[in-house]
């Protein structure tokens, strides 16, 4: 049961995190460590670096984000990720889907299904 629950949690997280990363990048361009620590500051969305980088890779493969190495104000050059035009429109769609799922699920969990 525990294994089941763990895999359920990680499945859910994986899907949600793509949305979270796209939402972060909508604000501004970011490099990997920034993304990891931004998520880290949000309980529930906190996730290991070992998961974030492959996710970034996947989003790039889907052409929702792009990346480029650039000098940064402090420290060494970093690989910055930005949202592509496709990423922007996908983010809007995913946001709508998410809102619809979460609204309906919330009312269901509150007992709306008993009506």
């Amino acid at each position: 049961m525990n294994v089941e629950k763990e895999s359920w949690t990680s499945q859910i997280k994986k899907g949600v995190l793509e949305l979270a990363i796209l939402a972060l990048l909508k604000e501004r361009e970011m490099y990997g460590f920034e993304i990891v620590s931004s998520l880290h500051n949000r309980p529930g969305l906190s996730i290991s670096a070992g998961t974030v980088y492959p996710l970034l890779s996947r989003l790039k493969k889907a052409m929702l984000i792009d990346s480029a190495w650039r000098e940064s104000p402090v420290g060494p050059p970093r690989k910055y990720y930005t949202l592509t035009a496709k990423g922007v429109s996908e983010l809007a769609e995913m946001t709508n889907t998410w809102l619809s799922i979460s609204n309906n699920l919330q009312s269901l969990l509150k007992g709306g299904f008993l009506e």
């Binding site: 070992g50 492959p54 890779s57 493969k61």
Partner: peptide, 21 residues
Amino acid sequence: VLKDIGEPEEYAQNLKEEGYF
């Protein structure tokens, strides 16, 4: 930090599975 990234073999595998490579 390294633990957070995961075993290098596993990390590489995850990247290859998800990535654009």
